[in-house]
């Protein structure tokens, strides 16, 4: 069942098309990446899904129906512009945000303590938010996004400002939620994060969808024949091989792009025959980052 359907949705500001006929569909239990450079229209799209701004055209369906205010209790949304009331106590704040998601006061407080323990913040529960470090505040915001056990979780740049330890913690919990059958939309401009986590992506540039589908299909479609080689000795002969498109030689490390229809195996044999001393030979998969740069690149996608 599709948890979310975005169908030909557009948003215009005067003559500027912030979002232009964007369509995608997300099945239950999937981790979906909404990708694109800064200013591509990701945040506007998510705000329209949350009914915070109203689309000028198109149709959005959540849980099989047009948006209703009650849907917000089933959704956890972590906006990119996020903050907390600085003068409120941590546990009071979480209780308030929990109640805003339809939990009872007692239940919200119970869950607040549960998650504070999980994030090792229990001893900060009675402190004011402004006494917490930035990283801790991020964790509080993250708790507030998931504490009401939402079916659909939407996160806009969730990793920005997190240290590696907290990034890992957040990633682990996202995977746990996915295993529990939750649907997750991850918006980011960090392609390596998306590559590790998402099964499906939708790449937006200048308000339009430029690429979408399961990540594995996309990678296959955009895979190039390239090889990374670490070696010692004279490797200049490689550039002259008939099936090599071009090389990028660093002296004892080389990136080699092969011509289409050439298997990396052919190069391997050629290198072995030449008696080159090889410490590493790796047939490369194209990274999402490369695909992103190839599609968006050329400086035409940025504000």
């Amino acid at each position: 069942m599709a948890v979310l359907i975005v169908d030909q949705v557009s948003k215009f500001y005067d003559h500027f098309k912030a979002v232009d006929r964007v369509s995608f569909q997300i099945e239950a239990g999937r981790m979906f990446g909404l990708l694109g450079p800064n200013g591509a229209g990701k945040t506007t799209t998510m705000r329209m899904i949350m009914n915070i701004i109203i689309p000028d055209e198109g149709r959005i369906e959540i849980f099989g129906a047009r948006f209703q205010e009650e849907h917000k209790n089933q959704i956890g949304y972590l906006p990119e512009e996020r903050g907390l009331y600085p003068k409120m106590k941590v546990v009071d704040h979480l209780q308030f945000l929990g109640e805003m998601k339809g939990l009872s006061a007692a239940e919200a407080r119970r869950r607040a303590h549960h998650w504070l323990e999980r994030f090792e913040l229990e001893k900060w529960a009675e402190k004011k938010v402004q006494e917490l470090s930035k990283g801790m505040q991020q964790k509080i915001q993250f708790i507030s996004t998931i504490m009401h056990d939402p079916q659909l979780i939407i996160m806009d740049e969730p990793f920005s400002g997190l240290d590696p330890i907290n990034t890992k913690l957040l990633k682990d919990i996202l995977l746990e939620l996915k295993q529990a059958g939750k649907t997750i939309i991850l918006s980011t401009h960090l392609m390596d994060q998306a590559e590790k986590l998402c099964e499906e992506i939708c790449l937006i540039n200048r308000g339009r969808v430029v690429l979408q589908g399961p990540l594995s299909d996309i990678k296959q479609r955009y895979s190039h024949n390239s090889v990374q080689l670490e070696y010692a000795g004279d490797a200049s002969f490689i550039a002259a091989l008939p099936f090599v498109e071009r090389i990028n030689d660093y002296g004892n490390y080389m990136e080699i792009r092969l011509k289409d229809q050439t298997a990396p195996q052919e190069l391997f044999q050629a290198v072995a025959q030449a008696g080159l001393q090889v410490s590493r030979f790796e047939a490369m998969e194209t990274s999402l980052n490369d695909i992103f740069i190839e599609i968006v690149g050329g400086g035409n996608g940025h504000e």
Binding site: R47, I52, K72, N73, G76, P79, E81, G83, P86, M100
Partner: peptide, 18 residues
């Protein structure tokens, strides 16, 4: 204004409307 400058506005909008 405090809700705007502390950037909590959109967090609140995820639970309720303007």
């Amino acid at each position: 204004l405090e809700e705007k400058t502390s950037r909590i506005m959109e967090v609140l909008l995820s639970s309720t409307n303007a």
